[in-house]
Amino acid sequence: MTKILKMVLPAMLLAGLFVFLFFWNKVEIVPLIQNNTQQFEKAVVTKILQDNLQENGSRIGNQKVMVKFLTGPDKGKEVKAVSTNGSLYGATCKKGMKVITLTNKAGEVEITSVYSFDRTWIVAGFVLFLFALLILVGGKNGFKAVLGLAVTFIFIAFFLFPAIYRGINPVLAAVITVSLSTIITIYILGGYTAKSAGAILGTVSGVIIAGLCATIFSKIAHITGYNVSNIEALIFVSKYTQIQCGDLLFAGILISSLGAVMDVAFSISSAVTEIHKVDNSLGLKELFKHGMNIGRDMMGTMANTLILAFTGGTLSELVLDYAYDIPFLQLINSYAIGIEIIKGIAGSVGIILTVPLVAFFAAFLCGKKDGVKKQKKSDKEKL
């Protein structure tokens, strides 16, 4: 009966949660731009009317091509289109290439251009390749990891974004997202165990610590969420919506820290649990010590991983600063660099402090469970 409840109850809660997310995601988006005159569709290039390839191999100017719509109300229709020679828009078209087109309408006039190469199925293929690799290498645990990734994506896409858009404080929305995603993901990976409980408590604590550190560091450094590079666009959006753009920076730090903190927390909790299984005579102090030893070996590499991840995210800007030989005082006091440093340090602090927290939680839960078993055994012996 207990086993059935352990299976049915989570399934019912999960189903209820997904029903909530379905209705929660029904948000009426305020139209910020008049895009009813624009139409994006899939198409295939049927003919190159005018190429822009030069004798030296470079491309200058635009291509003029014929495209055939594969989707939309004009499916099957062929029209002339222009493909610009740009790094962000357009594509180097060849006959048979599948592209995304943008059609602008003004009355009876329609102008079609090539927006980009159609990479929809390529992106989907990479995602499926990742999932297949996880399952192939990890087997059952790999499949659980895929489910965990799906859960995280669902919470970010269907809870976090609508919550922020509805006017909920982004930091609070991020904390709820992190907590729910952590609970479900770790439950999928570890089930109803002391290992899972310790990892959940450690992960949520570590991520919240990272957010608190970011908030404290930013106040001391006089950096706010209004100092991000795209703040003008965010302020414009916030005028017509309920989005609190000033706290998006700190909410982002919470979300970006989740993966690394969860990795450390689950690994330490799992290790402590296995040690306890091998020798259940170990008490809280000894288990905590073992957990700390394991955590010390991990925290250096994981903190380094987080720093490198944030650095990689701003690499193009750092290379530009290097190429222009920006003075050190200008560089270290710029908002962009200050924000990246805060992100890296706050996340690393979260990882470091997760180690003792999850080591204690896991040791306490294992020892408590063992103590209950010993008490039951002692009661039976008395009888």
Rank of each mutant, 00 (worst) to 15 (best):
L365R: 00
F117M: 15
V272C: 00
F288Q: 05
F250N: 06
T92R: 05
V109R: 15
V8F: 10
K47F: 02
L21N: 12
F153E: 05
I352T: 09
A221I: 07
I307V: 15
A363P: 07
A271F: 11
K95A: 10
S113I: 07
T301A: 10
G125Q: 11
T2N: 12
T193L: 00
E340A: 11
E232Y: 04
F266T: 14
I341Y: 06
I135N: 02
G142S: 06
L284P: 03
G295F: 02
K3T: 04
A323T: 09
N304T: 13
V204L: 10
I216Y: 13
Q242S: 08
S334R: 01
I351N: 12
I188V: 13
S257A: 14
K195N: 05
L88E: 14
T305E: 01
N333L: 05
K376C: 06
D297I: 04
I332G: 10
K94V: 05
A150K: 01
D263K: 06
K382G: 00
F129V: 09
T301Y: 03
G350D: 03
G350W: 03
L308T: 14
A323S: 11
G148P: 08
I164E: 01
W121R: 15
Q34W: 02
S316E: 06
L49P: 03
L9Q: 10
M7S: 08
S181L: 02
I208Q: 02
D118H: 04
K373Q: 12
V82D: 13
Q330P: 06
A15H: 09
S269W: 02
V264N: 01
A260Q: 03
V228M: 14
F161R: 14
K77H: 05
I339Q: 14
F310H: 15
I216F: 12
V151L: 14
S316H: 07
Y165F: 10
E232F: 03
K195C: 00
L70V: 02
G72Y: 05
I332M: 15
L331E: 15
K373D: 14
E55S: 09
F131S: 13
I220G: 00
G57S: 02
V261H: 08
S378H: 10
F23Y: 12
V151K: 13
F20N: 00
D247M: 11
A124W: 07
A363H: 05
G61S: 08
E28S: 10
G252Q: 07
I332L: 14
S316D: 12
G57V: 03
A145W: 05
L32Y: 01
D279V: 01
T193G: 00
H222P: 00
L318M: 14
K373T: 06
K343S: 07
K239M: 09
H222Y: 03
G344M: 09
P170D: 02
V237S: 06
V237I: 15
F117E: 15
L315Q: 12
G190F: 01
A221M: 14
K68N: 10
Y322E: 05
A265T: 09
V137Q: 13
E41F: 04
D279W: 00
T152W: 04
G259Y: 10
N227R: 08
F288E: 04
F153P: 03
L149R: 07
K373L: 08
E340Q: 13
L180K: 11
V19G: 01
F217V: 06
D51R: 00
L254A: 11
L70R: 09
T152G: 09
E286L: 04
M302L: 04
V19E: 00
L308I: 13
